[in-house]
Amino acid sequence: MRLLETFAATAGLVLHNARLHQKIEHTSRIDPLTGLYNRRGFFYTADYLLGRTDRMPDDAAVLLFDIDHFKQVNDTFGHDVGDEVLRELAHRAQTLLRERDVVARYGGEEFVILLTSVSPEIARRVAERLRHRIGSEPFTTSAGSLPITISIGLAMKPAHGEPVSLMQLITWADKALYAAKEAGRNCTFMAEAIEGEQVRLHKVVLQSLV
């Protein structure tokens, strides 16, 4: 009887430790402020979603975006208000995306989204819908209503082109994001591969968001 009790206690401890380890692993992939994946969680989930391959499918796209003039928000109203803005932005982004889309806080005020099973037209539409969703209504904060806008860089593997990695798409999206900021912010730029690792950057302009 004592042996069985010892075995049961040991098994219970092992199970408890396994669950604790699983919880810690999950927590380490989540941004505590926004509840989104953090950078580690983004790559972990993307790796699983893409079948643990470094090659991106033709119908995958990456959006990289950050908050325009976010430093001014922190400097003027304080970091607590800045945190409120980050949480609300995360909420608005989540309500717009599909369940299978992966959205994460990439660092600071920068966010990243992985879209799968999308055409270039749909990817552009998602980006512009997101930009409109963020900028259409002021953010309600403890400092009052604040107008918030974002700049977006979009990149997508060219159909029938050379294989590209997720990091390559992120690099292209980062170039597009920089172009969006240079163009005055509050807009979306798309990076399209033209030869090798060279990309053409152009502003996304849609007649309708529908």
Rank of each mutant, 00 (worst) to 15 (best):
T76E: 13
S136Y: 13
A127I: 07
C187S: 12
R52Q: 10
E162D: 13
L96R: 02
V204E: 08
K23P: 00
H132R: 11
N38Y: 05
I24Q: 14
A180K: 06
M156A: 01
F111H: 04
L177N: 08
A159D: 10
I134A: 08
F7Q: 15
C187I: 05
R129L: 05
I152M: 06
A123W: 00
R55A: 09
E109L: 07
A176K: 00
V118E: 03
L114V: 07
G78W: 12
F65L: 12
E110W: 01
H160C: 02
I30P: 04
I30Q: 03
Q22C: 06
G108R: 04
A180I: 07
A90F: 12
I30R: 00
R87W: 00
G12C: 10
R29L: 12
L13P: 01
G41L: 03
G108H: 09
E109T: 08
T6D: 15
E110I: 07
D83S: 11
E110K: 04
R129M: 09
E192P: 02
L146D: 08
E137S: 09
T149N: 10
I122S: 12
E110A: 07
V102Q: 05
L169F: 08
G144N: 14
V103Y: 04
L209T: 09
A127K: 05
P158S: 04
A180C: 15
H79W: 11
A60R: 02
F111W: 00
E195L: 13
F7S: 13
M1Q: 04
D80W: 15
G41K: 01
I148K: 01
I170M: 13
G78E: 12
R29Q: 14
F189H: 14
S136V: 11
S117D: 13
P57F: 14
S136I: 10
H26W: 09
M190R: 08
T141W: 09
R105F: 01
D59R: 12
T45S: 07
R125V: 06
K23Y: 04
L146S: 10
V164E: 10
G196S: 14
R133C: 15
G82Q: 10
M56I: 15
V85F: 02
A180D: 03
G41W: 07
R105N: 07
H202W: 10
H16L: 14
P158A: 12
H16G: 11
D66K: 11
I152K: 00
A183T: 03
N74A: 01
N38C: 00
P163T: 14
E110D: 01
Q72T: 11
A180P: 09
Q94W: 00
I170Q: 07
R105S: 00
